[in-house]
């Protein structure tokens, strides 16, 4: 019962404020005559007719596909490399300065470079997204693996776990709270880079469409595109939280038990 109540309250908090903001904007902009700031109603109309119509397949889905591929690539590379680096002190000492250097390069600057190698297609965008999103995942994985409790490792050695089991059953779960922290940061970076890479050079996609709409003075459609981006980020972060809550349920329980 209390659990249900808590769930309901937290849901109310998630939905409550956005709803208030939306209603305020709706009435605040109603009857707007400013060409650049159309009323919420006009924006919503074009959202429904334009973005939920043909643009869904033409622009939104290609963007989502790039985002998914880039993010997945970043996750696989970040966790894989992170575990390797985290487990070995020599590797860490050699790689850390190099990693810090590459991390310091702002990923958007890679767009012109990657266009030279990968053209202006999906490959380029996937690489741009991955090259920016990989860092928080990688660095958090390294830290998570490094911080695995030595007693947990000794226990695994005493019971003669295979390397595979050591990795799958001990190291990865032990590092998972930290890995998820990296994955969460990487998600918002990936969305930003998806838009930026599409703004540079593309033939479709959310970023491309919003720039095109602005240049052709289709202002309500442009605003609607921005709303779509916001909604996309919002939905993705809720999805992320949903997955995290399930995978890290043990961790929250452990924290609660330690506090009480």
């Amino acid at each position: 019962m209390t659990w249900l109540l808590r769930r309901a309250t937290s849901l109310a908090f998630i939905v409550g404020l956005p709803l208030v903001v939306f209603v305020a904007l709706w009435f605040g902009t109603a009857g707007s005559t400013n060409f650049y700031l159309p009323s919420m109603q006009v924006i919503m109309d074009s959202l429904a007719s334009d973005w939920l119509g043909s643009r869904l397949g033409d622009d939104v889905l290609p963007s989502l596909a790039r985002l998914a591929m880039g993010y997945l690539l970043a996750a696989v590379l970040g966790v894989g490399l992170g575990v390797l680096v985290g487990l070995s002190r020599p590797v860490r000492q050699v790689l850390e300065p190099v990693l810090e250097f590459f991390r310091a390069i702002p990923p958007p600057v890679l767009v012109p470079v990657l266009i030279l190698f990968a053209g202006i297609g999906t490959t380029m965008k996937v690489f741009v997204i991955a090259s920016g999103a990989v860092w928080p995942i990688l660095l958090n994985s390294v830290e998570g693996v490094r911080a695995v409790d030595p007693v947990q490792l000794d226990t695994a050695r005493c019971y003669r776990f295979s390397r595979r089991a050591l990795l799958r059953r001990v190291v990865l779960p032990a590092a998972s709270p930290q890995i998820f922290a990296g994955l969460r940061q990487a998600l918002s970076i990936a969305i930003i880079l998806m838009v930026i890479s599409e703004m540079f050079a593309a033939t479709n996609g959310l970023g491309f469409a919003i720039v095109q709409l602005q240049r052709s003075f289709a202002i309500p459609e442009m605003w609607a595109g921005i709303v779509v981006l916001g909604l996309l980020g919002f939905v993705l972060s809720i999805l992320f939280r949903f997955v995290e809550d399930r995978v890290l349920a043990w961790h929250r329980g452990l924290r609660r038990a330690e506090r009480s």
Binding site: T155, Y159, R160, R169, V170, A174
Partner: peptide, 22 residues
């Protein structure tokens, strides 16, 4: 030379020796 097959160890730090994710 390494942990023997027919030996088990119970550590002092039970909270850190059991895996909390299982």
């Amino acid at each position: 030379a390494g942990p023997p097959a027919d030996m088990a160890v119970v550590f002092q730090e039970y909270g850190r020796s059991l895996y909390p994710w299982m």
